[in-house]
Each structure stands twice: as structure tokens, then as C-alpha cells.
Simulated scan of single mutants.
Amino acid sequence: MTQLPHTRTRTVHWLATTAALAAVLGASALLQPADATANPAESTARASGAPDPGAAHYPMDCGGASARTDVLDKGTADFDGDGLAETVAVVRCKAEGGTPPSAVFVLAHPAHKGAPPRIVATLVRQKERMSVKDFTTGAGTVSATLLGYSSPDVPRCCPDKQRKVKWEWKNGKFALTPAPVAGSVSV
């Protein structure tokens, strides 16, 4: 049986994919909106009163003015210790079929009454072309498994790469900690 070229994995492919994923995730963790106002804390949030992810306006390209987004998952925690819960939302463009890429946003309460929730951090950007599974929030942390593709030739239905990640609230921003790549050796 002949294997297709994109199904044969070599060490160089894994290293290149790991380096690219680490660079994208590192850059997205460092880039935070200028209006992020949270302070460090480790308390668990009250779920009541958390920002409604369905009311937020997400900076996503969904292919037209009438295109909408779906909130696939959400979690709440009081990351900054102010007694008000923030909401973390996994969002993607609404689609009739296929698997559009996801994004992960942290929402805070609106700046003024009647306004939509504010996006204070973007943990995964839509343009990174990843899907999110095993999403959880806890005291000061957000965890997930990110699914991606080793090349443009891999069908968009079937991600062939995955990496567990965790963001921790430290020094007023989210710090990304990727888990080791499966099969790698820690030194």
C-alpha cells in the first residue's frame, strides 16, 4: 500500500510544526489589548454575574456582514480578584458544514451599562487556524487542547496535530505554558 506524501511523518516535520506552533502561541500570549485592566488573583469566581459571551462582539472574519459566530464553550473565573467573574469563550464562525477555526477570548464586564462585554485578552486567534477541545477554566487558569494541521494538504476535517496548553494569570496578563510534545524527551 502506497502512502500519500503528507501522511509520512519525519522528525524534521514534527520539529518544524512544534516550532511554528510555539511561535504562534507565544506571540498570541504576549499580545494583549491595551485596555486590559485585570489584576493578579487566585480566587474562584461566582458564575452569576459573569459577562454573557452571547452579547459580545468578536473580532472575527466570518465572510460577510450577515455572518455570525457560535459560542462553542465557555467558563468563568475571577482572574483579577476584583470579585467579578470574567468569562472565557471558545468561539468560531457559524457554519453549515466543515470545521471553521476557533478563537478563545477573555471577556470582562462592559465599561458602561448597556454596552457589550469587553474583550480583555485573546488567547487563540482565528487566523491561527486551530480548533479547541477539552476546554476548562479554574482559579487563575485556562486549559485546553489545541488541534491543528501539519500542512495545507491535510483535510480541514481531520486535524493531525494536537498540543495541551495552559494559560495562567500572572503579573496582570495571561502567560502561556505549552505541555511537552507527545514523544518528546524532557531534559
Rank of each mutant, 00 (worst) to 15 (best):
A175D: 11
C157A: 07
S43I: 14
V104Q: 00
K161Y: 04
S28N: 14
R129D: 07
P155L: 02
G183S: 08
P155N: 11
V120D: 11
A175P: 02
V91Q: 00
S48N: 12
R46Y: 08
G64F: 06
A38F: 04
A38Q: 10
S28A: 15
P5F: 07
T18K: 11
Q3S: 13
A139G: 04
V24P: 02
E96C: 02
V90M: 01
S48T: 11
L25Y: 05
D134W: 03
S143G: 15
D52E: 12
T177P: 05
D78T: 06
L147Y: 01
A139C: 02
V165I: 15
L147K: 12
M1S: 12
T141H: 10
P159Q: 01
V132E: 12
A50H: 01
G63F: 09
P100K: 03
V185P: 07
S48W: 01
G114I: 03
R156W: 00
A20H: 15
K74P: 02
P40W: 07
L123K: 08
A139Y: 00
V154F: 09
Q32I: 13
M1V: 10
V104W: 00
V181G: 08
R125L: 11
A56Y: 05
S48H: 03
G138F: 00
K94Q: 14
T177L: 05
W14E: 15
A45I: 03
A16H: 06
T37D: 15
A36Y: 07
M130G: 04
A20C: 06
A95R: 05
E128I: 01
V90K: 00
G114Y: 02
K166S: 13
D73C: 13
G138L: 02
M1L: 08
A23L: 14
L107E: 12
G26Y: 13
M60Y: 03
P53S: 07
A139H: 03
D160E: 07
T44E: 14
P33N: 11
G81W: 04
Q3V: 04
R163L: 14
R68Y: 05
A47D: 15
A34I: 12
K164F: 01
G64D: 11
F105V: 01
G138S: 06
T122R: 07
V90W: 00
V12E: 15
T11K: 12
T141N: 09
P53V: 03
F135V: 08
L21K: 05
V187Q: 13
F79K: 10
A121N: 14
G148M: 01
T122C: 00
P110N: 08
V154N: 06
C158D: 11
V24A: 15
R118I: 03
T2G: 05
S66G: 09
F135S: 10
K74D: 13
D73F: 05
A182Y: 12
L72K: 13
P152S: 09
A179R: 06
P110H: 07
G83A: 09
H6I: 05
K74E: 12
V165G: 10
G81Y: 04
N171T: 09
R163F: 03
G83R: 04
R8S: 15
P5G: 09
G172W: 04
K173D: 10
K166A: 11
A182I: 10
